[in-house]
Nucleic acid binder design. Sequence first.
DNA 1: CTGAAAGCGCTTACAG
DNA 2: CTGAAAGCGCTTACAG
Lengths: 345, 345
Amino acid sequence: MASIKDVAAEAGVSAATVSRVLNDHPSVSADARTRVLAAVATLGYRPNAVARSLRTDQTHTLGLVISDVLNPYFTELARSVEEEARALGYSVIIGNADERPDLQDHHIRNLLDRRIDGLLVSPTDGGSPLMLDAAHAGTPMVFVDRWIPGVDVPVVRSDGRAAVRDLVEHLHRLGHRRLAIIAGPAATTTGRERVDVFREALRAHGLDLPDAYVGQGDFQARSGRRVTERFLDLPDPPEVVFAADNLMALGALDALRARGMRVPGDIALAAFDDVPWFVHTDPPVTAIAQPTGDLGRAAVRALIARIEGRPGESLTLPARLVIRRSCGEPSSTSPSPPPVRRSKP
Amino acid sequence: MASIKDVAAEAGVSAATVSRVLNDHPSVSADARTRVLAAVATLGYRPNAVARSLRTDQTHTLGLVISDVLNPYFTELARSVEEEARALGYSVIIGNADERPDLQDHHIRNLLDRRIDGLLVSPTDGGSPLMLDAAHAGTPMVFVDRWIPGVDVPVVRSDGRAAVRDLVEHLHRLGHRRLAIIAGPAATTTGRERVDVFREALRAHGLDLPDAYVGQGDFQARSGRRVTERFLDLPDPPEVVFAADNLMALGALDALRARGMRVPGDIALAAFDDVPWFVHTDPPVTAIAQPTGDLGRAAVRALIARIEGRPGESLTLPARLVIRRSCGEPSSTSPSPPPVRRSKP
DNA sequence: CTGAAAGCGCTTACAG
DNA sequence: CTGAAAGCGCTTACAG
């Protein structure tokens, strides 16, 4: 590959001048500029980003560590992150933690070694020493979706409180009283919060959330299946299963189908996170939709602000309930909105 | 961040010795080794991968340009690629082309600038000059899923020929005669091949594939919806719609639902690519499943072989038909296999 | 406006 | 076994 020296030779100038032209430095003669540009074109020269990064100590790259690429929620998040970053002149490198703290650390280490300018993370756990060190050492960082309390890092996430209350209200009105939840890992904020909020909402209706109705999942499909089976084996099985994310809802559907149970006739189902498929499942699944694209974009802006020395603010956006048929006939006062489909920008 | 000089000072040796220890060079005294290792530990030193890459001209990084991150097929492909690469000591940087040739070029350029060791691509088009140049210039490259004829690059993909024949056989047996297809872009191999194979299979049954029954999609949901609406508006609408990928099948479901049509009662539906949700849609969708994980892993092995100067072979794996209920009652001779769920490794 | 020089953080022949 | 030195491809004060 042609290097800056080749271009300099071809154009009859020094490497410094080539560099200045390429970086739009003002003090370059028009003549030098055209000769350099011509040389660049004939050689098909592209600056070596590795060398440039070493010299400038900037990579114009953001690291994004997501919990699970197979989760459409994170996949959509990743897409919006990359889109916004690209618009602002940054690339993004994605690391998939697959809900495993060890893999998360692997990717954080890798990203740090590559000297990314900033880190966007949705922690799979309570924060490894490695991640905490990075935060304290001043690596620009932003938490998205999930976060770690007590760390001075902006958090961009959605607040499902109102939506969960709406959900419980909806379930209560349909006559359901025994409500169970498939929770995410207690080490994650979303794992804890969704249970807490659910419990709170139940209490407001005078309902209890017994331990047996809190199943421990890990946000992946297999655990949703396992927990649901356990619920069904209970002497007094729940009337409703609320999955704390879409993949565990998928697992729940697997379990229900395997037992030949009908939704919502035999048991009701609802999920946190809305995905396009929920419109077409049998029955369509009532879900809590997050403004995923907005979260991704806001997280990128906050991170880049931090990188450039500006404040970089936290942001919490509301989630909203989307009622479909998986919990019983929708009340006539809350018609199900039409399906949302994302399109090209 | 601590540099190699800091470690050298701390350990009382030269930077060269630190480097040798870190790279497992044989000629280092045991004493020097322990002192260096201790210094590394106390300083929390991590080598700067950027500097190392500049010097060694290797990044131990693979670029993966996929057509669409929102497509679960590619998401699963990306996951298996990263997994295999990691096992072999490589990182992967993913670029999402979003089915747009311009974005694809953007990512290829970015990846090349970063001096990735090799490129894995599933082209969204017939091959831009940029991509062709890279291939000819000797950038180690492997095509996965889609490919570009006439370029000397290994291809790892699946062959859907037998599965499409099985599908048409299945449809024919169920009495369907007017079969339509939602095709992918003609500029892609999979876009063309799936139509060709489908047409061939129809011919074997004495059936025709009229132009009106070939809808032009782009592998994304929106186009599946649009094409399906057009099919339904035909004076003589098809009895079956075969979507050439899972997202266009999703779009087709949107369109059918919007018109209040029942599947398979009013119209049958089948898709190329199987996704976990197809088990739970109303009705479960008959689909052609690819050995996605195997493709991703094989592609990585082929690419790394090329990088390391070994041959790096092409591979074609068969896809298989998974019969569900979306085309009518399955014949008793081909029972629907149980749902497949991927799990952690 | 321009070039020579230094330096980013590593690795690796080359001497010793 | 070890260190000094060169060099990977850039950028950027510093002189002129």
